[in-house]
Simulated assay, not measured.
Amino acid sequence: MVEGAGPTNNLAKRLLRRGVLWRKQSLGTESETGDRWFERILNLTQTCRQQKKLSSPVHVEAIDAYFHGKEPDLSWIEKIDYSS
């Protein structure tokens, strides 16, 4: 437990709530790989939203980097304080 942080991480839970609701409604994916893919896309989308950055160009750049065997540029990501 981190001093000064509450017992739950309410901001992170709220940010991921959309994905939880989607998974319950759609019965999720058919594989572990699909689950991991969805979790990563959801997290990237929420990070973009918090950083006030459009998510589509970030997704395109990440997919392009993957297919070209490169690491995507993640220098724009700032450390986020989830304790509030």
Score class of each variant (00 low, 15 high):
Thr8Asp: 03
Lys24Glu: 12
Pro57Met: 11
Leu15Ser: 08
Gln25Phe: 08
Glu30Tyr: 12
Pro7Trp: 10
Glu61Ile: 08
His59Cys: 00
Lys52Thr: 06
Lys70Val: 02
Leu27Trp: 00
Tyr82Glu: 09
Gln25Ile: 02
Glu39Leu: 15
Val58Gly: 01
Asp64Asn: 09
Gln50Tyr: 05
His59Ser: 00
Gln50Trp: 04
Trp37Arg: 09
Gly4Thr: 08
Ile63Lys: 04
Asn9Ile: 09
Leu11Gln: 05
Phe38His: 12
Phe67Trp: 07
Glu61Asn: 12
Pro57Tyr: 11
Glu78His: 06
Leu42Glu: 15
Leu27Ala: 06
Trp22Asp: 11
Ser55Cys: 12
Trp37Asn: 08
Leu74Tyr: 15
Val2Gln: 05
Ala12Ser: 06
Glu3His: 07
Thr33Lys: 08
Leu15Asp: 03
Arg40Glu: 15
Val58Asn: 05
Thr29Ser: 06
Glu3Asn: 11
Ala65Thr: 02
Pro72His: 09
His68Phe: 03
Gln25His: 09
Pro57Lys: 07
Trp22Ala: 09
Ser56Phe: 12
His68Asp: 10
Pro7Phe: 03
Leu74Val: 15
Thr33Trp: 04
Thr45Trp: 11
Met1Ser: 09
Lys79Trp: 09
Asn10Ile: 03
Gly34Ser: 11
Ile77Tyr: 03
Leu15Met: 14
Thr47Tyr: 12
Ser26Tyr: 08
Gln50Arg: 14
Val2Glu: 03
Gly69Glu: 14
Cys48Thr: 06
Leu21Cys: 03
Met1Trp: 12
Met1Lys: 10
Trp37Lys: 09
Asn10Thr: 12
Asp64Ser: 07
Phe67His: 09
Ala5Tyr: 05
Arg14Ser: 12
Gln51Gly: 03
Arg23Lys: 05
Trp22Gln: 05
Asn10Gly: 02
Thr8Tyr: 01
Lys13Thr: 03
Ser26His: 10
Phe38Asp: 02
Tyr82Lys: 02
Ala12His: 10
Ile80Tyr: 07
Leu44Asn: 01
Ala65Asp: 04
Glu3Lys: 10
Lys13Phe: 01
Gly4His: 15
Gln25Thr: 02
Val58Asp: 02
Gly28Ala: 08
Leu44Asp: 00
Ser26Cys: 01
Ile41Arg: 05
Gln46Phe: 01
His68Cys: 00
Thr8Phe: 01
Lys24Ser: 12
Leu21Lys: 10
